[in-house]
Amino acid sequence: MTDQKDFVQIRHAQKAFGKLEVLKDISLNVERGQIVAIIGPSGSGKSTLLRAINDLDPLTGGEILLDGVQVNKTLPHRQYEKHINEMRQQIGMVFQHFNLFPHLTARENVTMAPKMLKGLSTEEADALAEEQLDKVGMLERIDYYPSQLSGGQKQRVAIARAFAMRPKLMLFDEATSALDPELVDEVNQVMKTLAEEHMTMIIVTHEMDFAAAVCDRVLFMDQGVVVEEGPPEVVFRNPTQERTREFLRKHLAGAK
């Protein structure tokens, strides 16, 4: 276990898709229990950064460490696969489009990975599913298939699925932007609960109000660089950079 301050370390992260440089030397430390929001215009590299953390989009340069262990280690293929699968179990991810498994019920969505990877018995896994789905208010729909759930309900099940692996870190990539406006709140509520439990989270969002209310720190990204970062009061109220001001002007005006 490392210093609380360096729970998540991103050091000089670089990512290029062919010639397109999407992340240009990004560094970021997140303390244990901290909640960081990433905001910025579309195409600025927010998703890519998040997806680099669990190696869905491997970096082309730089390092990512979780709790002192380097995620994107250089290892022979087989060993790397084993290593990354173990790391990913510790990093929960929630996607914009939920990506629930449509052929499995809410219960099975939650229990599949714990059963396969942690050797939980059916009883243990069921207890876990009940606990996690209860936490997101979905216990009543435990045996429903995703096709029988609303967007907000799907996203809550997806959060329960990620959380069932007892991750050290949760990543949210615009978890509410595919939802009808009236369903946003139920998902935000669940995320607030996680925040109260001091889950370490990195949240990509376009909801400035939510970010201001829940997050300890806000990063404003544009064109693959962190333009500005700081506590939400500062970034939202008194941004120092012109690009941040411009983005917030557009965004807050558009949102109202």
Binding site: E81, N85, E86, Q89, I91, F95, F101, H103, M112
Partner: peptide
Amino acid sequence: DKGQMEAARTVGLSRGQALRKVVIPQ
């Protein structure tokens, strides 16, 4: 959908496990 494989990998399944349990059944 590509997101299915990604979601399965994200919870820690290997590629083979993800194919067997998530992609092929669908």
